[in-house]
């Protein structure tokens, strides 16, 4: 089934939203939004510490612990995770998967170490892709500010070979723009790797999700569209379901399906 994943970018305990991962605006308390999306029937949640790389550590442990008391779906956490020990600390708080970007770029062996320790399904490679004039995409870190010189397509292939179990594919160009995902990017990346690709960045309306799935995405990350209540998880789910895309049945989400 295709997964619908609300993405919550967090800065100093606030849920924030930017455009192209910058110009961040405060929206509210992340745990409240997390609970709301869980109740709406999100299939998974994504917590990204937006400033972690500035401080070199992830500051979401308290938030994760709070969230797992009342949210019973998988949670992926990214931002500032630099080592197997960092990942273990995050998982011990109740997270199910960790997303890594900067640390994997600096030391690709970390991907294999984490996969060996926690299993491949636990390791999400986060990519911040920016389209270049020559039509290629290069991978960036630190919210699209730091250049790595890595070609996205080559980098995902290598990362998957090393044990990445999933790709969080954020188009910095499209992020916050509400004009849809970078479909070409989704198509190219999902055609070169066998692991699930989460399309991220640019969902303006529910039908953008359909396009991402048709381009090969196994999951769609959604932020702005939900945070600003332009649509809801069940609203988006219905649009996908009507298109024949396999999603969790709505009946299995509301009151456990008995009402």
């Amino acid at each position: 089934m295709i997964r619908l994943i609300p993405r919550l970018d967090i800065k100093s305990s606030h849920l924030i939203k930017g455009v192209k991962l910058e110009g961040l605006r405060k929206i509210g308390a992340p745990s409240e939004y997390a609970r709301k999306y869980y109740q709406q029937g999100a299939d998974e949640l994504l917590y990204m510490d937006a400033v972690a790389s500035l401080y070199g550590r992830n500051s979401l442990t308290d938030l994760i612990k709070e969230t797992v008391k009342s949210v019973f779906i998988p949670i992926t956490v990214g931002g500032g995770i630099r080592s197997v020990d960092d990942a273990r600390a995050i998982l011990r708080c109740g997270a199910d998967k960790v997303a890594i970007n900067t640390a994997a770029v600096q030391r690709p062996e970390l991907i294999g170490e984490m996969a060996h320790t926690f299993g491949e399904q636990c390791v999400v490679l986060s990519i911040e892709a920016i389209r270049q004039a020559d039509g290629r995409w290069l991978a960036f870190t630190d919210n699209g500010r730091e250049h790595t010189g890595l070609d996205v397509v080559e980098w995902v292939k290598e990362a998957v070979n090393r044990g990445a179990g999933e790709i969080l594919l954020t188009s910095v160009d499209q992020e916050g723009g509400r004009k849809g995902y970078d479909l070409e990017l989704v198509q190219v990346v999902s055609s070169v790797v066998s692991v699930p690709v989460i399309a991220s960045g640019g969902m303006g309306q529910a039908k953008d999700g359909i396009a991402a799935v048709k381009s090969g995405a196994s999951a769609v990350a959604m932020a702005d569209i939900l945070h600003y209540e332009r649509d809801t998880v069940p609203g988006i789910r219905q649009v996908l379901a009507e298109e024949g895309i396999p999603v969790r049945p709505q009946a299995s989400i509301q009151q456990g399906g008995t009402e």
């Binding site: 019973f72 199910d96 399906g257």
Partner: peptide
């Protein structure tokens, strides 16, 4: 069941 939403809690 602990990660399967309301259905898992059931």
């Amino acid at each position: 069941p602990e990660k399967s939403g309301l259905m898992g809690l059931k």
